[in-house]
C-alpha cells in the first residue's frame, strides 16, 4: 500500500462518516458559497467586502454563541433578539441620562443578563417549557423596549462608540474581534472546564447528569443567563453600528441565530456540538445575504434563501442521531 493510497483511503473514510457532514456542514457550505459568489462577482473577496461581511457578522456571532449554549442543553432561546433590543434601549436611555459609556455598557449587559436569568429560572425551576418561557420573554422584552423608548429611536452620540463600530485592524473590524474573543472564550468554557462538561451532560441526559449529582437546574439557569448576557453585549455593538437604540424588533437575528446553530451541527436534542460550527454557520448566513445583495438580488429573496439553506443542511445531516 503506497502512502497516497492510504491518504486517499483515509479521506474516503472521513468523507463517508456521517458525523463528518454534521461537524463540517457549515464550513463546507461557507467555502462553497465563497467559491460560487467569487465566480459570479470578483469583488466578493475584495478587502472592502470581506471587512463588510465580518462587520455584519459580529452581532450575529455573539448571539449565536449564547444560542449554542442553550441549545446544547436541549433548550431554545427565542428571546435573544428581543432581549438585545431591550438592552439596546436600556443602553440608549443610560447614555441620554448621562451615565457615560462604561456605565451604560454595564447597564446593557445587566439588562440582558437579568432577562436571561429570569428565563433560566422559569425554565429550570418553574418547569415551564423553554419554548413558552422564551416566547413570552420575546414579547415582554420587545414590549418593554417600546414602552421605555416610547416607540422612538434613541439617538446615541459617542466618540468611543463610533470608533468601536468604524475601527479595524486590516480587514478585521474591532467588533468582529470582540465576537471572536467571545467565541474563543466560549469554546474554552465548553470544552476545557468542568462547567462545560456539565452543560454537555445536562443536554445529553438530564437523568444521567442528575444521577451523578450534577445540579442540572443550575446549569440550565446558567446557559440562559449566558445567552441573555451575550444579547446585552450584542446590544452595545448594535447601537454602535446603527448610531441609535431602536426599539424595532430584530426577528431576522432570532431566526438566523437558531439557523446558524443548526447549520453548525449542534443537535437540537442537546448534548452534542461545538462553538466553531455555529460560528461558521453565522459567517455562512452573513456571506449568503452579502453575496445576494452584491449580485443585486432583491432583499425579499434573502429569508427564502436562508430557509432553503437551513433545511438543506438539516437534510444533509439528518442521518446523525
Amino acid at each position: 500500500m503506497t502512502a497516497t493510497e492510504s491518504v486517499g483511503e483515509r479521506v474516503r473514510v472521513t468523507l463517508t462518516r456521517p458525523t463528518f457532514w454534521v461537524e463540517w456542514a457549515s464550513v463546507v457550505g461557507l467555502v462553497l458559497l465563497v467559491v460560487l459568489f467569487t465566480a459570479l462577482d470578483s469583488t466578493f473577496l475584495s478587502a472592502g467586502n470581506i471587512r463588510g461581511m465580518l462587520l455584519a457578522s459580529a452581532i450575529l456571532t455573539i448571539l449565536v454563541v449564547g444560542q449554542a449554549f442553550v441549545i446544547l442543553t436541549a433548550g431554545i432561546d427565542l428571546s435573544v433578539a428581543s432581549v438585545m433590543t431591550f438592552a439596546a434601549v436600556m443602553f440608549g436611555l443610560a447614555m441620554t441620562h448621562g451615565y457615560g459609556i462604561l456605565l451604560s455598557c454595564l447597564v446593557a449587559f445587566c439588562a440582558g443578563a437579568a432577562v436571561g436569568l429570569l428565563n433560566g429560572v422559569l425554565v429550570a425551576k418553574g418547569r415551564i417549557t423553554d419554548f413558552i418561557v422564551t416566547l413570552g420573554a420575546l414579547s415582554a422584552a420587545s414590549g418593554t423596549a417600546l414602552i421605555l423608548s416610547d416607540g422612538k429611536p434613541i439617538t446615541v452620540i459617542s466618540a468611543p462608540l463610533f470608533e468601536l463600530s468604524a475601527g479595524s485592524v486590516g480587514v478585521v473590524p474591532y467588533t468582529f474581534m470582540i465576537a471572536l474573543l467571545i467565541a474563543v472564550l466560549a469554546h474554552v468554557v465548553l470544552f476545557k472546564t468542568k462547567f462545560g462538561t456539565h452543560v454537555l451532560a445536562t443536554g445529553g441526559s438530564v437523568e444521567a447528569a442528575q444521577a451523578t449529582g450534577i445540579r442540572t437546574t443550575r446549569i440550565k439557569i446558567a446557559v440562559y443567563a449566558i445567552s441573555g448576557s451575550l444579547a446585552g453585549i450584542a446590544a452595545i455593538l448594535l447601537v454602535a453600528r446603527v448610531g441609535s437604540a431602536e426599539p424595532a424588533a430584530n426577528m431576522t437575528f432570532l431566526l438566523n441565530s437558531v439557523a446558524a446553530v443548526v447549520l453548525g451541527g449542534v443537535s437540537l436534542f442537546g448534548g452534542k456540538g461545538s462553538i466553531k460550527g455555529p460560528i461558521f454557520g453565522a459567517l455562512l448566513l452573513t456571506a449568503l445575504s452579502n453575496g445576494l445583495t452584491l449580485l443585486g438580488v432583491s432583499q425579499f429573496y434573502q429569508p427564502l434563501a436562508v430557509g432553503v439553506v437551513v433545511v438543506g443542511a438539516a437534510f444533509l445531516t439528518r442521518f446523525d442521531k
Partner: peptide
Amino acid sequence: TVHQNLALVEDLTVWQNLFLNREIS
C-alpha cells in the same frame, strides 16, 4: 450506584462518563 438505566451520557466519551461530576480540575 449503577442504575437500571445506566446513567451514562451517550455523547460523552468513556473517560468523561467515568469522571462525570468527579472531574479532576
